[in-house]
């Protein structure tokens, strides 16, 4: 497998979206040191994104939104299509 193809398939492989044959071929490519390094660091990058912590919504903001909604009045009615 060419490195160019290998690079294109990285996301599909870690997202488990490669078919069996291609996945097999991709795994064989991981025996190449550089491909393996690239794959490990690519996978780690995605893992680090998954680990970005969720922030709590500040309570004051939560209440501010609710107050704004209460003072806004009822939702707008659906627009009717004008007929000629």
């Amino acid at each position: 497998m060419e490195h160019k193809i290998f690079l294109q398939l990285l996301s599909d492989f870690i997202d488990d979206e490669l078919d069996f044959d291609l996945s097999d071929e991709f795994e064989r490519e991981l025996e190449d040191e550089f491909c393996c390094c690239f794959f490990n660091t690519f996978k780690k990058t995605v893992e680090l994104c998954h680990q970005i912590e969720m922030q709590e919504v500040p309570q004051s903001l939560h209440y501010k939104i609710i107050k704004t909604i209460e003072h806004t009045g009822s939702p707008k009615k659906k627009r009717k299509n004008k007929r000629k």
Binding site: E2, H3, K4, F34, C35, C37, F38, N40, T41, K44
Partner: peptide
């Protein structure tokens, strides 16, 4: 040559 550049190949994942 269609190969991954070496300077990108350091494995920092571990």
């Amino acid at each position: 040559k269609g190969e991954i550049k070496r300077d990108f190949a350091d494995d920092w994942s571990k």
